[in-house]
């Protein structure tokens, strides 16, 4: 994050940024990017602690597979099938995870690698696009810039992000209870299976959202890094959740700004910012002796 070089350089950067910001669309895109980052961080703790992180990883590959189907079908609005497809996969993965007879992890590995292979195969064989490797690359690592999102994608992302945040806040205490101690929650009459399903569906939505921002291979980073960073410093569920949301928003904002100024790919820039933040939080954690 050393974009402030010489003074003239800095001025030039600020001018460039101001120029970008004049376009309403750039502002919307930035707001949406930051909102997606906020959503991704919310369920991070649950994902890390509930052994759902592998589901998240598997799902992001499934999302890639469905995305390639959408590309082959030449759909302008890929979200129409990517969202339901990923949600369906989340529900199925949750089922197999609960079924003690099938090894959950193995099933997930199979599905996720299978989806990757099929996705690439489909795109390679049937895609009408002239820039195939560019398409594949941007589905895997995110678009070059957040500005390539279409107006419709921006709207859908904004709506979905707001829904995710509302659902999370509404069910916050339930999510804590189910994540912390499923057995007790069940004995207290909480409908644990229903909430697990809800969590899985929300994770699927978050993954589809995050795919727009950072691409399918980097989603896990966006979801998990803020939570892990926050857990280095804080020790209560609430403080960890709040801080990881703040951190994620902060990193996404800087990532987007830097990517616009320096012309770097937006997804990996955000993730790089998350990694730097993780390093700083680890140091702070060690320094204050909380770990």
């Amino acid at each position: 994050m050393s974009e402030t070089g010489k003074a003239s350089d800095g001025e030039y950067m600020i001018d460039k940024l101001m120029m970008y910001m004049e376009y309403p669309f750039v502002r919307y895109a930035m707001i949406v990017g930051v909102m997606i980052a906020l959503c991704s961080s919310l369920l991070g703790v649950t994902l890390v602690l509930k052994r759902y992180s592998f589901i998240g990883d598997g799902l992001s590959h499934v999302a890639f597979g469905v995305m390639s189907i959408a590309a082959v079908l030449n759909l302008t609005n890929t979200m129409i099938i990517v969202l339901p497809g990923t949600i369906l996969a989340a529900v199925l993965l949750l089922r197999t995870g609960q079924n003690a007879k099938i090894k959950g992890d193995a099933a997930i590995a199979m599905i996720s690698v299978g989806a990757l292979a099929f996705g690439y195969l489909l795109m390679n064989k049937f895609s009408t696009s002239t820039n195939l490797s560019g398409d594949v690359c941007s589905t895997l690592f995110g678009s070059m810039s957040i500005l390539t999102l279409t107006r419709r994608e921006v709207t859908i992302c904004a709506v979905l992000s707001v829904i995710v945040v509302i659902v999370f806040i509404y069910f916050y205490h339930k999510i804590f209870a189910v994540t912390f101690d499923e057995t007790f929650a069940k004995s207290a009459g909480t409908r644990v299976n229903a909430y697990n399903l809800l969590i899985a569906v929300v994770i699927a939505v978050i993954i589809v959202l995050a795919m727009n921002l950072v691409g399918s291979l980097l989603i896990s980073a966006l979801v998990i890094f803020p939570a892990l960073s926050s857990m280095r410093i804080f020790k209560t569920f609430k403080s960890v959740t709040v801080f990881s949301a703040i951190l994620s928003v902060f990193c996404a904002f800087f990532g987007i700004v830097i990517s616009m100024l320096a012309g770097t790919p937006v997804g990996s820039t955000i993730v790089a910012a998350d990694i730097v933040a993780f390093g700083i939080c680890s140091l702070i954690g060690r320094f204050t002796g909380t770990r």
Binding site: F176, A177, F180, F184, T236, F237, K238
Partner: peptide, 11 residues
Amino acid sequence: FPASVKEIVLS
């Protein structure tokens, strides 16, 4: 697992 005593008792 980050959870305070208060959060757990409240649950």
